[in-house]
Amino acid sequence: MKKILTLIIILFSSLNLLAQNNDIEMADQLRTDGKIYIVVICIVIILAGLLFYLFALDKRLKLLEKKSANKN
């Protein structure tokens, strides 16, 4: 659980550092149109899906490891 929390903190801190750069014209246009929130929501959904998939895969692998350890 500590690894997950550390990963999330690092991710949000790096996103904060990237968001401080105000020289990007496309981001300014998206922000004025209100579309930047759609982009952020899409990125969050994709990352959440990837994290869910990885945790589900890890859970299945642990079950397979337990089954193979019991057979041996």
Rank of each mutant, 00 (worst) to 15 (best):
residue 8 I to R: 08
residue 2 K to Q: 10
residue 9 I to F: 11
residue 25 E to L: 15
residue 71 K to A: 13
residue 57 L to R: 06
residue 16 N to F: 15
residue 44 V to A: 12
residue 5 L to T: 09
residue 45 I to P: 09
residue 41 I to C: 15
residue 44 V to Y: 01
residue 46 I to M: 07
residue 49 G to S: 10
residue 39 V to Y: 12
residue 33 D to R: 13
residue 54 L to Y: 01
residue 52 F to V: 08
residue 48 A to K: 02
residue 35 K to V: 00
residue 54 L to W: 03
residue 47 L to C: 05
residue 60 R to G: 01
residue 46 I to H: 02
residue 52 F to Q: 05
residue 8 I to E: 08
residue 25 E to I: 14
residue 37 Y to I: 07
residue 58 D to C: 08
residue 31 R to D: 08
residue 28 D to E: 14
residue 1 M to T: 12
residue 49 G to E: 00
residue 15 L to V: 03
residue 69 A to H: 07
residue 24 I to P: 08
residue 64 L to M: 10
residue 32 T to S: 11
residue 13 S to P: 05
residue 21 N to H: 10
residue 24 I to V: 14
residue 27 A to F: 07
residue 3 K to F: 02
residue 4 I to S: 12
residue 50 L to A: 03
residue 40 V to K: 02
residue 70 N to I: 13
residue 39 V to R: 13
residue 71 K to P: 02
residue 4 I to D: 13
residue 15 L to P: 03
residue 39 V to W: 11
residue 34 G to S: 06
residue 43 I to D: 06
residue 33 D to W: 13
residue 30 L to V: 00
residue 70 N to W: 09
residue 70 N to V: 09
residue 52 F to M: 10
residue 62 K to Y: 06
residue 17 L to W: 02
residue 59 K to W: 01
residue 12 F to Y: 10
residue 15 L to W: 05
residue 72 N to C: 02
residue 43 I to L: 15
residue 5 L to E: 13
residue 57 L to Q: 06
residue 17 L to V: 09
residue 64 L to Y: 00
residue 11 L to I: 03
residue 22 N to G: 01
residue 22 N to R: 09
residue 55 F to W: 12
residue 17 L to R: 05
residue 47 L to P: 01
residue 4 I to Y: 14
residue 28 D to K: 14
residue 27 A to I: 07
residue 29 Q to G: 02
residue 61 L to F: 06
residue 30 L to F: 09
residue 5 L to H: 07
residue 21 N to D: 14
residue 43 I to C: 12
residue 19 A to V: 09
residue 64 L to G: 07
residue 55 F to Q: 08
residue 58 D to L: 14
residue 67 K to E: 06
residue 14 S to V: 15
residue 22 N to I: 06
residue 35 K to Q: 11
residue 69 A to N: 00
residue 18 L to R: 07
residue 29 Q to D: 13
residue 41 I to T: 15
residue 48 A to N: 04
residue 6 T to L: 14
residue 48 A to Q: 04
residue 21 N to C: 03
residue 30 L to T: 01
residue 32 T to P: 05
residue 64 L to I: 01
residue 53 Y to E: 04
residue 11 L to G: 01
residue 58 D to Q: 13
residue 56 A to M: 08
residue 30 L to K: 08
residue 29 Q to K: 15
residue 42 C to D: 05
residue 46 I to A: 09
residue 42 C to M: 03
residue 24 I to A: 04
residue 53 Y to N: 01
residue 17 L to P: 00
residue 51 L to Y: 02
residue 24 I to T: 01
residue 47 L to R: 00
residue 12 F to L: 11
residue 42 C to S: 07
residue 23 D to M: 11
residue 58 D to H: 13
residue 47 L to Y: 10
residue 20 Q to G: 15
residue 61 L to W: 04
residue 49 G to C: 10
residue 30 L to Q: 00
residue 47 L to F: 08
residue 71 K to T: 09
residue 27 A to V: 05
residue 47 L to I: 11
residue 63 L to I: 10
residue 53 Y to K: 03
residue 59 K to V: 08
residue 44 V to G: 03
residue 57 L to I: 00
residue 45 I to W: 05
